[in-house]
Amino acid sequence: MSRFARQATSWVALGPMAVFVLVGYLGTMLWTLRISFSSSRTFPADDFVGLAQYIKLFNNDRWLLSLNNLALYGVLFIAATLLIGFLLAVLIDQKVRGEGVLRTIFLYPYAMSFVATGLVWQWMLNPEIGLQQAVRNAGFVDFSFDWITDQDRVMYTLVIATVWQASGLVMAIMLAGLRGIDEEIWKSARIDGIPAWRVYLSIVLPMLSPSLATAFVLLSTAVIKLFDAVVAMTQGGPGVASEVPTKFIMDHLFGRANIALASAASVVMLCTVLALVAPYFYARSRADRRKESA
């Protein structure tokens, strides 16, 4: 086959996908950007009001609180999930019996819809019918665990429930990485008499950095997308204490018939994601280039 024909074939194969990306992703992004500069309410309007929607957005207490909540949630969720996921992977890597069963159990939460499991979490955390009441009935009458109805602690309940869900995924990624570590490294470390925890911390963990980076990116997108857990567990409450940006966008898009404000909020979220992810991709592309030139 001539070079030209080969190229043409690959373009034909990639074409539909390229069109889909251009229209489906970039097109809708640009459309959202356009709407965010208009005064649209229920229907898209084609006027231009400058940054009015953005000013309104950043004067909105609920939006600012949502951003705060998301930042708090993001830091806690990513840190806890990475830590627990890694520990679970190390645990399973000890060649424990019933590894297959354990792996399945830890991965199961991730396979289930959070709309369903979130409801179960809501019941368990409910102070009147859940854990608190159960422990009190067991005789510890002073036991108190009512975070889900507590203004200042409700975000932690979301962290707990979603860490439970996502840790299995991190475990799977980390375990794959651990299995890729050369046995020789363990042998030589053993000869040198280095304790196992030290090997994990100083040798294995740095070698796992690609797995870590993958897990980090996946978890970051999960943070930005956080929606189903909030809807299933707290509906943003009590009050507005557990509101998050995605819920703000959804509420304004339909129920409150203000698609311009919702679009402005979406654009702000998109910029946040880009700001978070860009350094990572930049570093990776530099690393790739270095590898190529080496």
């Binding site: 909105n60 207490d61 507005v240 304004h252 129920g255 409150r256 018939a257 203000n258 404000l261």
Partner: peptide
């Protein structure tokens, strides 16, 4: 408007 209603609800529930 639905938007004003929603904004009022946010303030009252807070």
């Amino acid at each position: 408007t639905p938007d004003q209603n929603g904004a009022m609800m946010d303030i009252l529930t807070a």
